[in-house]
């Protein structure tokens, strides 16, 4: 397995405005890599730099061993790209567009395009101006995937798709991974990222603040914990434990976020009669918000 995407100190600024700063990133072959961050964090700037749309201000980036600026045609020959905001020629039908893109890529068979259209329920016969946003998004996905590229770069790919089509799309992404191809996946839909991505990178204010496997990111983070006792207990000893945050008492129930070791909490609770216990991992969304709220700044840096 080798790196499909590799950046070192990648920086892109627009005059005095921030884009991305000193980004070191490696995406391995055969993985689905989630790229997370709110609007303006630098996700799209990073993607556009990787595709050679923008020249790096500093640092270097390679995709499949090609320099993203000097060899951007070679990069784009091997990448299927879905931009976050795009428009397709109004007067052309989906089939006409896909045929045109196939000519640009030297692809002769459109069999996979028809297969994808069938699975996503895309209408290839109507001109773009008569398609809804969701149906245009399907054509966008097909043009990114029909040539079976070694690397797929998808920026907010499920925007506008209904839940059933989203499910089908995630199934297609799993198949892409099983074929050993790589997916660079930017999304706001965190449950979706949690389901599909092997690793996740979080970008904040232009800087890559964390790269973890999705499981590790979730596992090393805090837990939601609820303890229900037979009778009300004094919360103070629990509050004094290291790693307990946001403790609330509601009758016989104590609930809090636990950042530290579970052992001390269990031992302290064992001094009382425990009726029920809930110990839940947070959603990726909560972890993401924690990064942005600065609660895990120590881990992030």
């Amino acid at each position: 397995m080798g790196a499909v995407v590799r950046t070192e100190g990648l920086t892109k600024t627009y005059g005095k405005a921030r884009g991305i700063e000193d980004v070191d990133l490696g995406v391995e072959e055969g993985e689905v890599f989630g790229f997370l961050g709110p609007n303006g964090a630098g996700k799209t700037t990073a993607i556009r730099t990787l595709l050679g749309f923008m020249r790096p201000t500093a640092g270097r980036a390679e995709v499949l061993g090609w320099d993203v600026w000097r060899q951007s045609v070679e990069v784009r020959a091997s990448v299927g790209n879905l931009p976050t905001e795009f428009t397709l020629e109004d007067r052309m039908t989906g089939e006409q567009l896909i045929r045109f893109f196939a000519r640009l890529r030297g692809v002769e068979s459109l069999d996979h395009a028809y297969e994808l259209a069938g699975r996503l329920g895309a209408d290839l016969e109507r001109p773009m101006r008569r398609l809804s946003r969701g149906n245009k998004q399907k054509i966008g996905l097909i043009q990114a995937m029909f040539h079976r590229p070694p690397l797929l770069v998808l920026d907010e790919p499920t925007g506008g798709l209904d839940p059933l089509v989203q499910e089908e799309f995630l199934g297609i992404i799993r198949e892409v991974r099983e074929e050993g191809r790589t997916v660079f996946f930017s999304s706001h839909n965190l449950p979706e990222v949690e389901r599909i991505c092997d690793r996740v990178g979080i970008i904040r204010e232009g800087k890559l603040v964390a790269v973890e496997t999705t499981d590790a990111l979730v596992n090393k983070s805090f837990r939601h914990m609820s303890l229900i006792f037979a009778r009300p207990v004094d919360p103070e000893p629990f509050e004094c434990l290291g790693g307990v945050e946001g403790l609330r008492r509601d009758g016989q129930e104590l609930s809090f976020r636990l950042h530290g070791d579970l052992d001390e909490v269990v031992k302290l609770a064992a001094g009382h009669r425990v009726v029920d216990l809930r110990y839940e991992r947070p959603s990726l969304e909560e972890i993401f918000l924690a990064y942005y709220g600065g609660e895990e700044r120590g881990e992030a840096s």
Partner: peptide
Amino acid sequence: MSTGQTEPRTRRTREKPRGTLAALT
């Protein structure tokens, strides 16, 4: 940047297609 960590390009990259100028025109 070291390219020693990446696999040979020929194994997984695509050749630049020809005829793009005519297709665009």
